[in-house]
Design a protein around this nucleic acid. Structure first.
Length: 302
DNA sequence: CGTTTTTGACCGGCGC
DNA sequence: GCGCCGGTCAAAAACG
């Protein structure tokens, strides 16, 4: 468990290449993982979690949750609530066009990292740009799509598509600028579910897989009866609000500490963790393999 | 034969 | 206004 003990990635493996991520939280320590595990997110030691909250998504949550988030934000960033609440004003893209590209606003783009060479590996540039030709998705003209909460997981793994208890169907793949690795786009196979996820490898550390989830499942996992998926913001906020005494998370936007923002030290630890290829297809009967399969929040199901 | 993956085209946002 | 780029579509191929 104490794999990362002291190990620091030589090349400082950080999220450098992902400066555009609307990141709010970034977990990289055992302690942080422990907290997550209390949610039922039994993350592998090689996993780092990031909450890619977006401004637009807040409209989907209660005010209470917002408040809690504010508290949370203030606890570590001296009241820079915007960091959390609006994801560093990263993307309130459900506003009018032009104003929505807040994500690209210079203010929230600290030195970010050494190699900002990589542009938006995550899109966030507010260019969610989709609006499928088939306007069946309820994306009417004038009202942009509200981006769902996003969470990214960095995992050291040989396989790209990590098992998470849900069934996904790939609907696209694109080459990532400045990265030799393509990015895969997946959608939950449940027709009623709009959750999507992107999978890509870190161009800096090919052994790391970055999985970004967007949205919340409206159904249970296939292999995990305890259903639920990404805990609601409220859960997050509440939990963290409780442990404000410790620096559980780091608001990237608030820590322009020259690239050293987040060292995913544990990532470089060669934990025995690895997902078998077969598992990528079918959810395992038990929740010990999956990266997110364990994510099924235990207390979620109320 | 039903489902998933592959892959090129297309769309819309954004920067220049 | 144009080109770039991320994200999505959809037809065909692949798979089990």
């Amino acid at each position: 468990m104490e794999d990362e003990s002291g190990k620091s990635i030589p090349g400082s493996t950080e999220f450098s290449g992902h400066s555009s991520w609307d990141t709010d939280y970034f977990f990289s320590n055992d302690r942080e993982r422990n907290i997550l595990s209390e949610f039922g997110w039994n993350l592998q030691r090689d996993t780092v979690v990031r909450d890619l909250e977006t401004g637009g998504s807040f409209s989907a949550f209660d005010q209470i949750e917002l408040d809690q988030r504010s508290d949370l934000a203030g606890s570590f960033s001296s009241g820079s609530h915007q960091v959390i609440v609006s994801s560093g004003s990263a993307s309130i893209d459900n506003k009018s066009p032009g104003g929505g590209d807040a994500a690209s606003s210079p203010s929230n783009q600290p030195s970010m990292s050494s190699s900002s060479s990589e542009e938006q590996p995550e899109n966030s540039t507010g260019s969610d740009g989709k609006l499928p030709k088939i306007a069946s998705k309820g994306t009417k003209k004038g009202q942009k799509r509200i981006r769902q909460p996003r969470f990214a997981f960095m995992t050291k793994s040989e396989v790209d598509h990590l098992e998470d208890g849900y069934r996904w169907r790939k609907y696209g793949q694109k080459a990532v600028k400045n990265s030799p690795f393509p990015r895969g786009y997946y959608r939950c196979t449940n027709s009623k579910c709009t959750v999507k996820k992107r999978v890509e490898r870190s161009s800096e550390d090919p052994s790391i897989v970055i999985t970004t989830y967007e949205g919340q499942h409206c159904h249970h996992t296939v292999g995990f009866p305890i259903g639920g998926f990404i805990p609601h913001e409220s859960a997050f906020a509440a939990r963290f609000a409780d442990s404000t005494s410790t620096n559980i998370y780091y608001p990237r936007v608030q820590f322009p500490l020259g690239g050293s923002l987040h060292h995913v030290s544990q990532l470089q630890s060669q934990g025995p963790y690895q997902v078998r290829p077969e598992l990528t297809q079918r959810p395992p009967p038990q929740n010990n393999e999956g990266l997110l399969g364990d994510i099924v929040p235990s207390g979620m199901r109320s």
